[in-house]
Simulated assay, not measured.
Amino acid sequence: MPIPTAAAETVPASRLAVWGDPIAHSKSPALHAAAYQALGLDWEYTRRQVTAESFAAALGGLDATWRGLSLTMPLKEEAFRASATRDPHAELTGAVNTLLLSDRVAGFNTDVGGIVDALTEAGLDGARQVRIVGAGATAASALVAVAELGAGHVEVSARRPERAAGLVMLGERLAVPVVVRPLDQPAAAAELTVATLPGGTELAADTVASLAAAGGTLFDAAYAPWPSALATQWSGGPAVSGLGMLLHQAVRQIRIFLHGDPMVPLRDEEAVIAAMRAAL
């Protein structure tokens, strides 16, 4: 979907935002503001509540002062459909969490790299037997991430197993066997459990007990509230919040907004990351 560019020569594209529903809990504005201050950029980054139904109209209403968007639930599939071009991680997962706005909207998935970086930072990058809880867009990103880190087998625990059919097919593309189980059935042993449920989700105590009994370390993509309901009841090992994922996917977003490429490091990136971490 093209974005109007009539004012592009006279008005700098310096506006950014995170969109989602809900969105009040998002720490992205604080993260991005800290990064742009460290980089000496006079860019504006705000938040806006946008539903899946209102996304197309909201996107079409942006003018040439807008540089890009961060997208969270439930907009990642909507952003995928709105993208004229997509990076490989977006194509694999069918999900876009970053839009670079110009004549042609470019879509990226930085969640995959954010999960890879966060798991590596936490020393959780060697797990071969992995469980993913949930079957949405973040679950697809988690599957690609753990596959890139060398997972040999992935179990998906989902409330509605039929929703996980796409993850089974994605596993075939990644050459990683994926088995799907209903969330309320006993789970197989795992070294690492990656929870991709929305923040605030509460599971029955017996379901949590089954997941935790053989679940290893919990890496929970949720970070607000923290500890999550799942982390509070987790007894299988340590519980790690999704703040690391949030931080590292945001670093890749900022690279995109600045360079158009998630792999091109920022100037003084270590200092920028330190400023972002302090903002959390």
Score class of each variant (00 low, 15 high):
P4V: 13
T10Q: 10
V11C: 12
V18F: 12
W19S: 03
P29W: 08
A33M: 04
A33P: 05
Y36S: 11
G40S: 11
A56R: 14
L59Y: 07
S83D: 06
T93G: 03
N97M: 09
N97I: 07
L101V: 14
L101E: 06
V112Q: 00
I115Q: 00
A118P: 07
A122R: 15
G123S: 05
L124K: 00
D125P: 02
Q129K: 15
I132P: 01
A140T: 05
V154F: 02
S157R: 12
A164K: 01
E172C: 12
R173C: 06
R173M: 12
L174T: 03
A175Y: 14
V179K: 14
V180A: 12
P182C: 10
D184S: 12
A189T: 15
A190Q: 08
G200P: 01
E202Q: 15
D206R: 11
D206V: 07
T207P: 00
V208E: 02
A209W: 01
A214Y: 08
A214P: 00
G215F: 03
A222S: 10
Y223K: 06
Y223F: 14
A224T: 15
P238E: 15
A239D: 10
A239K: 02
G242D: 04
L243T: 13
M245Y: 04
Q249G: 00
V251K: 01
P262Q: 09
P265A: 09
A275F: 14
A275Y: 12
M276W: 03
A279G: 03
